[in-house]
Every structure is written in structure tokens, then in C-alpha cells.
Amino acid sequence: MSKEAYHKRREEDGLASRPQKRFYRQRAHANPFSDHELVYPSCPNEMDWSPYYPHFITPGQVPDPAKNGHESPAGSVDAAPPRMTANVEILDIGCGFGGLLMALSPLYPDTLMLGLEIRSKVSQFVRDLIQSSRLENPTSGAYQNVSCLRANAMKFLPNFFRKAQLSKIFICFPDPHFKARKHKARIVSATLNSEYAYILRPGGILYTITDVEDLHLWMVEHLDAHPSFERISKEEEEKDDCVRVMSTETEESKKVERNKGPKYVALFRRLEDPAW
């Protein structure tokens, strides 16, 4: 079956069947510096989360165009997006095919979690996967707390999330960008870490895992050197449920398992900002 025919049929069948990965394949790399055809809100207040988490829309609200935070005084007349009963608190940066999200969803059923993926087809796969999983569990409300959207996390995180909104950020098996001149494209960098610190609340945790030792050392060096983060001890790491999930449930971790490769884990706690 061709890709087109597959996607057409899925649409006609109402997206109930589980999506098949082979119809969503896309090359593994995307240039984070180029201008992609991206849709993103100009600020967090403008972000409409209701299509992503329909079970978490505040019931019985009447849209109030006057209340729109940033845009209120002399700004646009756009109606504010519907209010939600919860905010996204767990973020998976570069979620790939969504294995981590699907495994985390039942662990924190009342917490909204979001995957960001720069490859459009892959993010579409995760959305289709979530949709079919929701349809398979119509009464339990399972998987209502997960979603995925296409975004460039290196550029537009503050467009989606307010200061200190998140409690956990996952960076699992990121693109290693082996060549030295591509190191600026790595998802953990000295300057980007300040942005992770901005959206992560004090006490929140940044999780990293990779099978590339050099990248692991790179991430540890850069997060260790950043005054907003401190490394979490191995003992504490082992007690964290999320570590087990990210070491076993993501697509990449399964692949590494198959190839009997190594896995390097490092967790970092967001510290309080110093007095000023």
C-alpha cells in the first residue's frame, strides 16, 4: 500500500486503528537552525491546548475576549483560548515515536505531558498513536493526558511554556551531532540550558539518556557547569521510576537493548535562583 493510500484509509476509518510506523518514516535529522514551516503561538497565553487535551478543558466556560493577558489593552481582538484545568508539566524534547510518553501516561494520569518533535511525520505518528489509544480506552480516560506537537524546541520553548511551568524535562537519545562543527546543534548547550532553567521550576528535574558516551560527557559537562543545575546522585537516580521507564520504554532504548549497547543516564535538579 502506498503512503497516500494508507493515510487516506486511516482518515476514512476514523483513526481508530493503531498507526503503522513504516508509513511515517522520515530521515532522522532536521536542521534546527533553518526556518521550518512551523506553527507556534506568539506567547504562552495564546496557546490553545484544548484540541490536545480535550478532557482537561474547564467545563462550562464562556469565551471572554476581553481577558487575554498579553493581548488585552490595545492589542488584537482574538478570543482567549479555552481555559484548562491543568497545565503541561512534563515535557519530552525530541519525543520521536512517543514510546516514553505512552509509558509515562499511566504513571501520572492527572499530569499533562507533551512531546515535542521537529519531524512533522513523526509527530503526526505520535498524535495518531495517542488518538487510537484514546479510542481503544473510551471510558477509562487513559492517554487523555498525553499529546504531541511539532516544534523546534531549540528556538520556541518560551512561546509554549511560562516561567517555572514544568516539573520534568526529558531529553532521551538526542541527535549526537558527531562532527565538532555541528556541536552547536546539540540540544544540550551552555546557552540553551538557561532556557531549560527558565521553564523548569526550582526542584524540577531534567533527565538525560544517550548511548553515545561522548554526548553523555558533553551533556554532563554543560549541565554541571550551569549554575542553575546540580547533578542528582546515582542512589536517588535509581529510586526514580522515570529512569526505569526512559531506560526501557523509548524506541531508541529498545534498539540499544537489541544491539547490546551501553546506556548513559544523568539527572539534574533545577536549583533556586540566587538572591539578587
Binding site: 506567547c43 518560551p158 538557561s194 532556557e195
Partner: peptide, 25 residues
């Protein structure tokens, strides 16, 4: 160029972002 205005503490706390002014398209 990506529509962001960012407010950061001055040195030596230059790793703390205080706020963003977002709204440009």
C-alpha cells in the same frame, strides 16, 4: 530574528532569564 525579546540578569547572574516579552509575529 525569531520574534523574541529576552530579559536576562546582568553579570554575574547572566544565566538567569527573568522574562520574555512575547507578541511579535
Amino acid at each position: 530574528r525569531d520574534e523574541h525579546i529576552r530579559v536576562t540578569r546582568y553579570i554575574p547572574q547572566n544565566y538567569v532569564i527573568e522574562s520574555f516579552c512575547l507578541g511579535h509575529k
